[in-house]
Structure formats: C-alpha cells, structure tokens
Amino acid sequence: MADIKPRSASGYSSDVTQACEQTLLTMLSAFGNLKDTLRLVGGLVPRYLTPEAHPEVPAHAGTSDVDVVLNLEVLASGDEYATLAEQLKARGFERTPNRDGRPASWRWRRKVDDHLIVVVELLRDAGDLQPGRAVSINGEEVSAMCIKHAGITADWFCEKTVTAHLLDGKGVSTEQIRFADVPAFVILKALAMNQRQEPKDAADLIHVIRYAGTLEEVAELFAARIQSGKHQNAMLDGLTALKLRFCDDEYAQGFEKVGPVAYAQFLGADGDEELIGYQLYAASLVEGLLKLIHEKTTFTLP
C-alpha cells in the first residue's frame, strides 16, 4: 500500500525533491547496463519537462518519491537482473513494508538522513494483467507493480543529462535520465487521476500542460504522437480520462469536477473566490487542449 502523500503544495519542499534526484542516480548504478532501459515517471518528471525559469515558469511543487518503469522484455533477455536485489541492497536500499508489516518487493526505500527516507517504486506495463497487481520478476526478491499503459514510455520519452551528489558521500555522478515525454506524462497522470483522484496528480497534470510550452505547442506534441499510429489505445484512454475529470458534459460543468477541485485544493486558496478561480482555470486549460488536439488530428473522444 502506498504511503499517504501530502495533500497540498505546502507539504513538498525542494530539499526533498533534491533527495529524490540523488536517490534516483544512486539507484541507477544498481541496474548496470540496463539503466538505459528505465523510464522515469511520476512527480519527479516535471522537474525535467518544465525546468524552472522565473518568471515564466515557476518551480514545480516537487515530489517525495521516485517512480520508474521497467522494460521487462529487455530485462528478460539478459542476466543482469538476476542480481538486482543484491545490487540494490549494496547501495543501501531495502524493501518497504506494507501496512501488514510484510516487505513489498516492488517498493524499495533509501534512508537519506535521520529524518528523510525516499521510496522508489518499480512499475511495469500491465499488458493483459490486472492493473494494481504486483508481479514477481526475480523470485520473491524483486517485483513490479502493473500500471495500465506504462509501456508507452519505452517509445515516448525525453532525455536529460543530470548531475547530482550520490548518497552517502559517494561523489558527484552524471547520468542520462530518460523520462516520460509530455504526452506520455499527461496520459499516465490522467489515468492515475481517474483512478485515485489525488490532488497531486491533478496539480502535476495542470503544471505540465501549462508550462511545457504554449497550449498550441503542447497540442502539437499530442498531434505528432497520434499521427505516429503508436499506442492509440493509451492515447484514447488517457484523453478520455482527462475529459471525464476536467470537462463539461451532461453530468456537470468542468470546473465542478474532481480534477479542477483537486487542483485548486492542492494549491490552497484564500477564500472561495480564489478557489473557484483555480477550478475555472484548470477546466478551461484542459478543454482548450482537447479542442486543439481535435482540430489538428480529428481525434475524437467518446
């Protein structure tokens, strides 16, 4: 069971986000030659998709954990994975206990200091399996949580050279990080938002859509992915989820829905007027994006 995350932006800090980046780079060495096949998803991605550039692009709220997608086809073709658990343990990682006290082999944690522990979640594409199920990869030592459409990141990703101090004073390391690109990130976050309706998911979605470029440029990124012909079911499911949770329909006005409300609650508001303002903005932004995508591609949602 996942830890309870902060419900508002005030619960996140740049120091914790920096610790997550250090944890990511420390973990990568455990994968050896396979590290290039990993794809970063989740709350650390906006740090790279929308780098802070005041005043145009404010700093993203950050994250408190690290989520990576494993490419099981590549892993199965080599033997490096056989020692992954030992390599993780050698770098100070340990399996994270579930609420029942038993260790979860898909969630590994790393102590950063006396007050901070960062959790790394290992994920895989669900394929024909039930999303939300952890599947063993290497005996009982390592598993990965099945996530619907996570495999799109194998094709739809960006790269960035990242330099950070490794944990335990192991020196400065520079690595090439591969992470979900804008369409992949939005799709996966929309699916997560549809399922668990967390304020952080809504805030991450809106931040990336707003600051990854102009709305026209973001729509062009989606159009290019749609025109590629790849992962069309993922695109349909993700954009349908986005429409359901943020846009007007016969059930409710978009600003009243859980997406805009969660976004506004995450930001925090000084009174109802500001709260409604945030909700209206989020609904309008998503509505505008979906309209532009349709105009550029004739991609139609149910």
Rank of each mutant, 00 (worst) to 15 (best):
I4N: 07
K5L: 13
S10L: 11
G11N: 03
Y12I: 01
S13I: 01
D15A: 10
V16G: 07
T17D: 00
Q18E: 15
C20E: 03
C20G: 03
Q22N: 14
T26N: 12
M27W: 07
L28P: 08
L34I: 00
T37Y: 13
G42D: 02
G43C: 13
G43K: 11
P46L: 02
Y48C: 02
E52H: 06
E52R: 12
H54V: 14
H54L: 14
P55D: 11
E56D: 12
S64V: 15
D65R: 13
V66Y: 06
D67F: 07
V68T: 08
V68M: 11
L70D: 01
E73C: 07
A76F: 07
A76I: 00
G78Q: 12
D79F: 07
D79P: 02
E86S: 13
L88T: 12
K89A: 14
G92T: 10
F93H: 13
F93P: 09
E94N: 10
R95T: 07
N98Q: 09
R99S: 00
R102G: 05
P103L: 05
P103M: 10
W106Y: 15
W108V: 11
R110P: 05
D114C: 00
V120R: 02
L129P: 00
P131K: 07
I137W: 05
G139W: 10
E141C: 05
V142R: 08
S143L: 05
S143W: 04
C146P: 00
I147H: 06
H149Y: 15
H149T: 06
T153P: 05
T153Q: 07
D155S: 13
D155Y: 09
W156N: 14
F157G: 01
V162F: 06
L167H: 04
S173A: 15
Q176W: 01
I177N: 00
R178H: 10
F179W: 03
A180E: 05
L188Q: 11
N194T: 09
R196G: 10
E198V: 03
A203H: 12
I206E: 05
I206S: 08
H207M: 02
V208Q: 10
Y211V: 03
A212G: 10
A212T: 01
G213K: 08
G213D: 04
T214I: 06
L215C: 08
E216K: 06
E217Q: 15
A219M: 04
L221S: 11
F222A: 05
I226S: 00
I226E: 01
Q227G: 04
K230H: 09
D237E: 12
D237P: 02
K243H: 15
L244E: 13
Y251G: 11
K257T: 11
Q265W: 10
A269M: 03
A269S: 15
A269I: 04
L275C: 04
Y278R: 15
Y278L: 12
Q279I: 03
L280R: 13
S284Q: 10
L285K: 05
I293P: 01
H294I: 02
T297R: 08
L301Q: 04
P302A: 01
